[in-house]
Structures are given as structure tokens and as C-alpha cells.
Design a protein around this nucleic acid. Structure first.
Length: 820
RNA sequence: GCCGAAGUGGCGGAAUGGCAGACGCGGCGGUCUCAAAAACCGUUGAGGGCAACCUCGUGCGGGUUCGAAUCCCGCCUUCGGCACCA
């Protein structure tokens, strides 16, 4: 019996040795092909939980596998260190965010090292350090130069709990993505990145190997729609026109009113004096409403008439102009033509206010019969499908698709409108009224307005002595030493911008920085980036589909157009790992008390066992509950592997190879093929199942196979498990007599001629039901196999002299004899 | 409401047109032990049968096929995304 495996001691020892020998230091050039393996970097919360392990440890196993396959692998680690949680923690505990963050990073470095990953710690980054965030500022200035950053007054999403504005992407169903508070809107001057300029390019995901649901989410988020934008003259106001956007210009003859968003710039101008008070009240009410209230489809449709009419350019009819909060100021032109018969929202609104509902589209199936003469009152809801036009002048009888084109062309020829594409995506609001972030490098001068901080004055340091409690104003506002400065243009007193940047700016380009994080005169090292980028495999949660992943793609495209890089996508392959739930099947949270701390398990059964167990739980994109009992299966497997290797061949085993050797050799090669295939396809659960099957089959053969083969089998198993259980594999490799690290070895290959069995089991069916099985030589011909099948007594019994109508033969698998 | 994914033993799951339940957990029985733990061996979908074996069985209902967990149609449930985007 071999000595017991002492995981904690072995793991500590090898981690120290790997660090000492610099085993995982990565050079920026190699004869080997490069492979950049990246996980979404963690927020320094101070506690590495089992979910981090699920993400990081498994990603590391895959990266180790790639390294053994001959790639030069870059696997960096760092911290997404700015952001609200540090401020919250700092406020709650009275510690400065900087200290809290740096302490958390220190703790997490220790915990991360317990994973046993190949991180090259020389490349570590922390985004809250000036050496990093100065490049956020530098990139901001570049974006400004290219008109990709701009300042505008807009009704920004406001989170009352976080006391800051948010980007649209950070609002989930009307609630703050971070703290789940119902958000409101505030009219503020804010900085934006012009991501909408890249809407079309971002829709192109060809060449990306990403989960389809992520690309679908991005496509839906960008929301491209084709339509017509046209202008309506306003009665008695030849100086004003109302622009509207519609995707259903085929229904334009059904327009019975026009709606402006409450915040539409023309509202004041167009409102008649008698309506002024009501209109202003409504505007105020709409401004105060939370997103939840505004977005609720259950809600009664409200609005106020301005007391003025516009002219429908299609038929010259007068239609009243209203404001209503179901029209958004931020989409299209902020105004719509309302066609209540063919739009459900307009329909409900028209019913509420007794406005005319005029049907102009007949369902296509009814087109043969005369147009229905039904009164509007009979309609229960809008008919929103396509159909055939009626009451539409010379367009009557056209189907919707043809009419969309015909009417668009007509409008274009009249000069009242043109075809237009609109996108749902909004520009990215990056201003945050919080302390713990990158200061936006802008100075406001009375004479010169918003002046960029000159490059040579970067970084604009975040002052350490600031009051950071959120008040709704940016904390930096209260720091005179920070705020008061001089204008870079004229030298007169000026004020600094006091908002900080959204932390998604930091994570939009960090993958470039990892390539050479020590470069001092540029955000990234062009040569190193040229070598390593794009990221070959990116692993992280799906929750970033329309935030980080979209922003990073935008950044890379913008940087490419600036000539700073020469590729257009940051992440070639993307994998979304699932979420590990608590043992109760619920999402882990401190308040539920179901958070699993990996440290206890690492101490007890070893990091290798935790890694393997997480891989074994199920498909990697599935996640699932942490079942503390299940880990014993992996423990047992690893112990049996340990014993198998250390016990060595049976003392009475044959010296020369016999028939058992042939079977075992085939099994070794077949398993190698399965493990290789599963590793490539991220199927870690079946990869480990294959190794378990192998060891289960191997153990009873110990006395039967030759000593040499037993040793070969041991070595092969150690190599196959090395990416998944790197510490034990290293220990076993050395115990087998090797002096170099197992992690410098190549992945074992397999001989295609050995992965198929010489004997195969053929299933014999009668009318699709299994009745017998026979063992035949794999290369036996169809006729012989069928003969053997018909010779089977069991088959004969079921055939019972019935005439055979058909025989299905699947080579090496089955024979199905059909009699009916 | 719209879009998407998924439903398989007590549990995690495997099998993507060809032996349903690989592998593991848990359970049951056994070996060892004074005993327990650990380790090891056997067994474990349901029903029937002394047994060899037989029948049923992958959310529900239909279909295609020699053959369906797998493909098609309809429904139910769960999860995820979007949700006034004109």
C-alpha cells in the first residue's frame, strides 16, 4: 500500500517551487503558436468564492491543456479595482477605498495562488492605480479628438441608491443592475461615448466564435430597424415642421394624430396658451416617473393635447398634436405618427381620448373580398400584421411590403421624407457622480468652455484626501485642491470636471494592457499586442453580454480606426461558464448564508480535487448547485490514481506483453482520443468520466499486463490529468523518476489504428427490438455478420418463420431484421 | 406579450437517428474490524417472473422512420433575455 496522498503539503510545495523556478513566466515571442487565454478579471471583493474557482480553475485547465498541445500560452490575472463596492465597503467600515481595495487585492492574490493556475504574476494589473487609469484618461482624450466622446445634456438614468447616473446597459427592467433599485431620470450634462457610430459594425459578428445567445442579445440590444423619416408641416406655423420616424409608412393614411415625447424640444413652442399649464404639469409628472412606471405596459395611456394641428403630407388632413410619455425622446426623432388601427399603443391611447381609429390595412387573406366596412368601434385591438392597403388613395390594393417602398419613394420625390435606419442602442453615458473611479480629464474655463487636459499633464490624479460619501453631487466637487486649477489655454482660474468614469471603461481595453503592463509611455505595447491579440479564448459570465462585451468590441473598433491596432475584434472565442449555486440550489449570497468558501475544501481535500470536482459537476455552461457530498467521488478517483502510480506494476506481472497488453493499449489510446476531444470542446465532465472509466478498467489488469505497459499507462494517465490536477500530476511525475516539470511535457497523442477495437459488439434487433448481441471481428463483412445474426437462436425464436422483408445493417453496430 | 434555451433514475448527469441511464453521488448488501470510519467487492429505472428472461420507460399528445431522448407539428412546465424603440 502506497503512502497516503497529503494534498495540502504537496500543493504548497509545488506552488512554491513553480514560483521559484519561474515555470509560468511567459516570453513575448516564441517559435510556438501563441494562445491568449483570458478570464474576465475579478472585482477585488476580498473573498474568492467558489464561483471564481469555477471560472478561473477550469479556464486554467483548458489553458494548461493548450500549453501541452504546443502553444505559447498567455494567462494573465489582474483586478477590476475601481467601482462602487469599494466605496460602499469603505463607507461601512470607515476605511479609505484605496486601502480597502489594495488589502482585498493582497488577500485575493493569496487565494488565487491556491488555485494553482499558471498566472504570470509579473503581468498583474490593478485598474485603480495611476499607471493604469492615466491611460483611461489618455484614451478619453483620443476619443474626444475623434469626436467619439462628447458632452451633452440628456435625461440620464439615475440610481437613487448608488447616487449616480448609469448607462442604459446598466439598467435591467427599470432597475439598477448593481443594487436593484428602481431608477429615475435626471436632466444632466454628461459625457458620452459615441458607440452608436459603430452600431452597424457591431452587428457584424461573422468570424466570432461566440455563443449564439450572446450575439443574439447584442443584435437585439443594437436593434436595427428600417423605416422612413418624414416631416409634417404645422398648421399656421410655416416656420416649424415635426419630424417623425416610422417602420410602417404603409399605414400613413391611417394617421389620426401625432405624438411628441414630453421632453421634445418643440413642445414649448407649439403649445397654445390655453393648454400651457396642463402641458407643463404633464411634463413635470413624466420627468418624475420612474422607469418602471414609464415602461409598464399595464399602465393607462396618458397625454395632453397641445392645441395645435399638423398636416399629414400623404393626404393633407389635419391631425391634432399631443404629448404622451409612451413616446421616448431618445429614440428616432422623439415624435411619432399615431395610427391607432394598426398599433396597439396608439389604439389604447386613441380609445382613452376618443380619437379617430381609421383602418387602412386589411388582412391579406381577406384581400379578395371587398374591404370591410366595419366601424372602428368594432375593433377590439389594433391589427398590427402586414396586409393590403385600403383608404390609401392610389396605393389601395398594394400589399404592405410593396406599399412601404412605393410610399417611401413618393415621399422622397416630394422632398418630405426619406428612408432611414434607426438603432435602438444609445450612446454610452460614462459620467459617474462617485469618487472611486478615473477622473475625467477635462477643465472648464469661462472663456474656453470644456478644455481637454493636455496629454503631458496626465494623469489627473484622484486625490486621496477626498470626502467620498455620495451626496448626489460628485464627491470631488468638495475638494477645492482638486477642483481649482487653471485653464490650459489661457491660464486663468478654471474648474476641473468632478465626475469620474464608468468602470466599464477600464475593462474595455485591459486585455491590451496585459500584453505588456509595464510600458510607461503608452496604454499598450504595440509589438506585444501585435503578437498576443486578439484573445483566443475568453471565459466569463453571460451577464456581460450587452455591457462589457459590447463596450470592449466598440473600443477595439475605435482603436483600430485610429490606427493604434490592426484588428477589429478583441475576443475570438467566447465561452460563458454557468453559475455555481449554493447547496440549497439558490444563488449564493451572504444574506442567504449559503456562500461556499473554497478555502475549507482546499485545506481538506486539496485544490486539485476542488478543480476536478467543479469540472465534473456537469456541462461547463450549466453551472449548478454545489453538492458537498459529491466531491468524495473525485477524491476517490484521485487517490486511486495516486495508488495506481505509486504501487507500480504487480511484482508477478509478466515481463513481456501478451493479449492483455493489446486490450489495455487500445483502451489507453481510445481514452486519449476521448479526453483530447472533450478538452477541445470544453466538455470537462465527460473528460473526467473517461479517465475514471480508464482507471476502473485498468486496476483489475495490474497482474495481467506487462510491467512496461503498466508504467506507460501510469505516465499517460499522469499526463492526461496534468491540466486538471496540476499539483498531484507534478508530484507523481517526479515520483516516476522525472526531473523536469510535467507541465513542460507534450500532450500525449494517439495512434488512430489503436483507437478502434478489433472485436465489436453487434446488436441484433428483430423489428427494432434488441434480441441478442454478438461479438464479431471489427472488419467482418456485412454478409457474414448478417449470416451470424440469422444464426442466432434468440433471433430465430422471434422471427418465428415470418418472411423477412428487410435487413438493416449498420457496420460495427447493429443488424435489424424487419418482418412487418 | 415577443425571442431563445431546456425538461432523462432518489440526485448531478451520459447518450444528438442505432444497446437509454456512461461516470459520479446517495441507497442497499457484503469483506476487513471488538466496533466505527476509511478502503475494497457486489447491487441499485419501474413492474412481472423461482429462473432464463419478459413488458413498460427520456414533460404531455400526435407524426416521420426498419428504428426517435435525439427529427417534425401541437401543448404544458422551468429558466434566461427583451419588453412602449414607433
Amino acid at each position: 500500500m502506497a503512502e497516503k496522498y497529503r494534498a495540502a503539503e504537496v500543493e504548497r510545495r509545488w506552488q512554491a517551487e513553480w514560483e521559484r523556478s519561474g515555470l509560468y513566466k511567459v516570453a513575448d515571442q516564441s517559435d510556438r503558436p501563441k494562445y491568449y487565454s483570458l478570464v474576465m478579471f475579478p472585482y477585488p471583493s476580498g473573498d474568492l468564492h467558489i464561483g471564481h474557482w469555477y471560472n478561473f480553475a477550469i479556464a486554467d485547465s483548458h489553458a494548461r491543456y493548450k500549453r501541452m498541445r504546443g502553444f505559447q500560452v498567455l494567462e494573465p490575472m489582474g483586478f477590476d479595482a475601481f467601482g462602487l463596492p469599494a466605496e460602499e465597503a469603505a463607507i461601512n467600515r470607515g476605511i479609505h477605498p484605496f486601502r480597502w481595495t489594495m488589502d482585498s487585492i493582497k488577500r485575493m492574490e493569496v487565494q488565487l495562488k491556491a488555485i494553482g493556475a499558471m498566472y504570470d504574476w509579473d503581468r498583474e494589473i490593478a485598474t485603480c492605480l495611476p499607471e493604469y487609469y492615466r491611460w483611461n484618461q489618455w484614451l478619453f482624450l483620443k476619443f474626444l479628438e475623434k469626436d467619439l466622446a462628447y458632452r451633452a445634456q440628456a435625461p440620464a438614468v439615475w440610481c437613487p441608491h448608488c447616487q449616480t447616473t448609469l448607462a442604459n446597459e446598466q439598467v435591467v427592467a427599470g432597475r439598477c443592475e448593481r443594487c436593484d433599485t428602481v431608477v429615475t431620470r435626471r436632466l444632466l450634462e454628461q459625457w458620452f461615448f459615441r458607440i452608436t457610430a459603430y452600431a452597424e459594425e457591431l452587428l457584424d459578428v461573422s468570424g466570432l466564435d461566440w455563443p449564439e445567445r450572446v450575439t443574439t442579445m447584442q443584435r437585439n440590444w443594437i436593434g436595427k430597424s428600417y423605416g422612413v423619416e418624414f416631416r409634417l408641416p404645422v398648421e399656421k406655423r410655416p416656420d416649424v415642421e415635426i419630424s417623425v420616424f416610422t417602420t410602417r409608412v404603409d399605414t400613413v393614411f391611417g394617421m389620426t394624430y401625432v405624438v411628441l415625447a414630453p421632453e421634445h424640444p418643440l413642445v414649448d413652442e407649439l403649445t397654445v396658451p390655453a393648454q400651457r399649464e396642463q402641458v407643463q404639469q404633464y411634463q413635470e409628472q413624466a420627468r418624475r416617473a420612474t422607469e418602471i412606471e414609464r415602461l409598464s405596459t399595464e399602465r393607462e395611456r396618458t397625454g395632453v393635447a397641445l392645441g395645435i394641428s399638423a398636416i399629414n403630407p400623404a393626404n393633407g388632413e389635419r391631425v391634432p398634436v399631443w404629448i404622451a410619455d409612451y413616446v421616448l425622446g431618445s429614440y428616432g426623432t422623439g415624435a411619432i405618427m399615431a395610427v391607432p388601427a394598426h398599433d396597439q399603443r396608439d389604439f389604447e391611447f386613441a380609445q382613452n381620448f376618443g380619437l379617430e381609429i381609421r383602418e387602412v390595412i386589411a388582412p391579406a387573406s381577406l384581400s379578395a373580398s371587398p374591404p370591410p366596412t366595419s366601424e372602428a368601434a368594432e375593433l377590439r385591438q389594433a391589427y398590427v400584421e402586414l396586409g393590403v392597403l385600403m383608404r390609401s388613395g392610389r396605393f389601395d390594393g398594394l400589399d404592405s411590403d410593396a406599399a412601404k417602398i412605393a410610399i417611401a419613394e413618393w415621399f422622397e420625390s416630394l422632398g418630405v421624407g426619406e428612408r432611414k435606419i434607426n438603432y435602438r442602442v444609445r450612446d454610452w453615458l460614462i459620467s459617474r457622480q462617485r469618487y472611486w473611479g478615473t477622473p475625467i480629464p477635462i477643465i472648464y474655463c469661462e472663456e474656453h468652455g470644456a478644455v481637454p487636459v493636455p496629454e503631458d499633464q496626465l494623469p489627473v490624479l484622484l486625490p486621496e484626501d477626498a470626502e467620498f460619501r455620495p451626496t448626489g453631487q460628485s464627491p470631488l466637487t468638495y475638494n477645492p485642491a482638486f477642483v481649482n486649477t487653471t485653464c490650459p489655454r489661457c491660464g486663468r482660474p478654471a474648474r476641473r470636471e468632478t465626475d469620474t468614469m464608468d468602470t466599464f471603461v477600464d475593462s474595455s481595453w485591459y486585455m491590451l494592457r496585459y500584453c505588456n503592463p509595464h510600458i510607461e509611455d503608452a496604454p499598450f505595447d504595440r509589438a506585444a499586442v501585435q503578437y498576443w491579440m486578439p484573445v483566443d479564448q475568453y471565459i466569463g459570465g453571460v451577464e456581460h453580454a450587452t455591457m462589457h462585451l459590447l463596450y470592449a468590441r466598440f473600443f477595439i473598433k475605435a482603436l483600430r480606426n485610429m490606427g493604434l491596432i490592426d484588428f477589429g475584434e478583441p475576443f475570438k472565442h467566447l465561452f460563458n461558464q454557468g453559475i455555481i449555486l449554493g447547496p440549497d440550489g439558490q444563488k449564493m449570497s451572504k444574506s442567504r448564508g449559503n456562500v461556499v468558501n473554497p478555502d475549507d475544501y482546499v485545506q481538506r481535500v486539496g485544490g486539485d480535487a476542488v478543480r476536478c470536482y467543479l469540472m465534473f459537476i456537469g456541462p461547463y455552461d450549466g453551472g449548478g448547485p454545489w453538492n458537498p457530498q459529491g466531491i468524495s467521488g473525485i477524491e476517490g478517483f484521485l487517490h486511486r490514481l495516486w495508488n495506481l502510480v505509486l504501487d507500480g506494476p504487480d511484482p508477478n506481472a509478466p515481463q513481456t506483453s501478451g493479449p492483455a497488453d493489446d486490450r489495455v493499449l487500445r483502451l489507453l489510446h481510445k481514452t486519449t482520443q476521448r479526453v483530447t476531444d472533450d478538452m477541445e470542446r470544453f466538455r470537462f465532465n465527460t473528460m473526467l468520466a473517461a479517465l475514471m472509466e480508464l482507471i476502473n478498467a485498468l486496476l483489475p489488469q495490474r497482474a495481467k499486463v506487462s510491467k512496461q505497459l503498466w508504467r506507460d499507462a501510469s505516465e499517460r494517465m499522469v499526463l492526461l490529468i496534468a491540466p486538471s490536477a496540476p499539483h498531484m500530476a507534478e508530484e507523481l511525475w517526479h515520483r516516476l523518476g522525472h526531473t523536469e516539470s510535467v507541465h513542460l511535457e507534450s500532450w500525449p497523442g494517439f495512434d488512430p489504428s489503436l483507437v478502434t477495437d478489433s472485436q465489436v459488439t453487434v446488436v441484433l434487433q428483430v423489428n427494432g427490438k434488441v434480441r441478442d448481441k454478438i461479438e464479431v471481428a471489427a472488419d467482418l463483412g456485412q454478409e457474414q455478420v448478417q449470416e451470424l445474426a440469422l444464426a442466432s437462436a434468440k433471433v430465430q425464436a422471434y422471427l418465428d418463420h415470418s418472411p423477412i422483408r428487410q435487413v438493416i445493417y449498420v457496420p460495427g453496430r447493429l443488424v435489424n431484421i424487419v418482418t412487418i
